[in-house]
Simulated assay, not measured.
Amino acid sequence: MPKLRHLSMSGNLLTNVGLDAILEGCLLLESLYLQNCFHLDLSGSLEKRCRDQIKDLTLPTVIDENCDDEDNDSFYLDSPIENEA
């Protein structure tokens, strides 16, 4: 999709490999919405690349299960999908 300019995915199982493929194949991409795509690990250079390449970027919200502050708006999610026994 080399001419793609806008992409929205919510609650998708997208991984870093898939996101990298999108960034490589969609050089004209201007807006990217990735809300609730919790299989991404943006702790490394991938987040910087997204921010540098995409003008309008929405990344997954992070949920901190260890946070006691009820007014805290930043979150971190350790495991988006619980292992089923």
Rank of each mutant, 00 (worst) to 15 (best):
61 T>H: 12
10 S>M: 10
29 L>R: 01
4 L>C: 09
7 L>P: 00
8 S>H: 10
27 L>A: 13
50 C>D: 04
77 L>M: 12
5 R>T: 15
50 C>K: 00
9 M>S: 07
29 L>V: 03
32 L>S: 07
62 V>L: 11
54 I>C: 12
74 S>I: 13
54 I>K: 05
16 N>V: 00
68 D>Y: 01
3 K>Y: 08
44 G>Y: 10
26 C>A: 14
75 F>I: 04
37 C>K: 00
69 D>N: 15
33 Y>N: 15
32 L>P: 04
76 Y>N: 11
62 V>K: 10
80 P>C: 09
58 T>Y: 05
61 T>P: 02
38 F>T: 03
75 F>R: 06
42 L>R: 03
74 S>C: 11
18 G>K: 00
28 L>W: 06
58 T>D: 06
18 G>T: 01
27 L>I: 09
24 E>A: 14
28 L>D: 13
26 C>P: 04
69 D>M: 01
1 M>Y: 07
81 I>V: 14
56 D>N: 15
25 G>M: 04
30 E>A: 10
35 Q>K: 13
82 E>R: 14
60 P>D: 08
73 D>P: 06
17 V>Q: 15
6 H>Q: 13
84 E>P: 03
71 D>I: 02
7 L>Y: 03
73 D>A: 12
84 E>N: 11
41 D>E: 10
32 L>V: 09
64 D>A: 02
5 R>M: 13
